[in-house]
Design a protein around this nucleic acid. Structure first.
Lengths: 171, 171
DNA sequence: CGCGGAGTTCAAGAAATTTTGAACAATTTG
DNA sequence: CAAATTGTTCAAAATTTCTTGAACTCCGCG
């Protein structure tokens, strides 16, 4: 029995009160997550799960973090997609329970796969579009532009080959 | 003499008109730059410089991209700091001229040095703060939390050692 | 079946970030 | 030196992104 959630007559949800420790950990993940361009709520959710010995339900996240159900749902969706969070079956409870995945390699791999690779892939199309434009470009600049676009192509190829390697460097 | 900027009596700055090619290249850099969390204007500026055979002044950037002087100034500051842009001396012109740095390795190294490393460094302090909080945490969770914070420390150390390696994988 | 709990979706509001523009500082030049 | 030119700064406006909350879909249960 985690916290005594007894039948208090208060109309307000009663401050869910995060411990100082939890707040500090969450803060770390909020920063981290913003750095990689994901919304704060994702960091809050992951941070709380990371601090929690047992899996939590969407509902607990909503209460303890004071965020909306919508945010929690969307945040969990992202975390699930990158494999940062794992659903845990709990007997006799219809609700989903989630636990934080703590293997760095998995987290990075998931982020690369879901957030970075798709961009690189769309870059391939972009590049061929640029090459097609090259034909109709002003002849005077043509040589220069051709060189630059080829440079872009090099970058792109290099990125595509290096990103996956990154995963290998971890753990 | 690049563009004939003759004395036209028009009150409006006259649409600077980017070529289709330029627009497409800029578009690529705007996406890239947003991915890494920098403002669009930074991508626009770098994109135009990347497409340009000769170095451009702040003023040309303002006119051709139709952005404010403030944006251009701030954007160039960022680009200079990460070494994505190089000032080029032009005889008999008081203004600064800028050229795009196109060595991928340099760009990545600069970004890591200026934008990523500082965050990792502040993370060091954060971690020791967490460790100090550990003392005052509820004994029941103490073992679990201790393990999690140690995990965080591992991640941190691993990141600090891997990030610099990244540079070596390029070019 | 219909009710109720769990979770998702998405349009509208709130918050955060970026851009603007005008005032300022620093130089150069006539 | 004063005037003109170049670039910077920063508060306010504009834009973008995130969060909210209510409507909705699914399911399992009685």
């Amino acid at each position: 029995m985690p916290t005594a959630q007894s039948s208090s007559p208060e109309p307000l949800p009663a401050p869910p009160q995060l411990s100082t420790m939890e707040t500090a950990v969450i803060d770390v993940f909020v920063s981290a997550v913003k750095l990689i361009g994901l919304p704060k709520s994702v960091g809050e959710i992951y941070g709380l799960l990371f601090s929690s010995p047992n899996p939590l339900t969407l509902d607990s996240l909503v209460r303890r973090l004071s965020i909306s159900k919508g945010s929690a749902s969307q945040g969990l969706k992202v975390l699930r997609s990158v494999g940062a969070v794992r659903p845990v079956y709990v007997a006799g409870d219809r609700r989903d329970h989630y636990a934080a995945e703590t293997e760095l390699k998995k987290l990075v791999a998931g982020f690369i796969r879901e957030e970075l690779q798709p961009r690189l892939d769309s870059g391939t199309e972009r590049l061929s579009h640029l090459n097609s434009l090259l034909a109709s470009s002003h002849p005077a600049d043509s040589a220069f532009l051709s060189a630059r676009i080829s440079k872009l192509g090099q970058w792109h190829a290099r990125s595509k080959s290096v990103l996956p390697l990154l995963t290998g460097l971890l753990d």
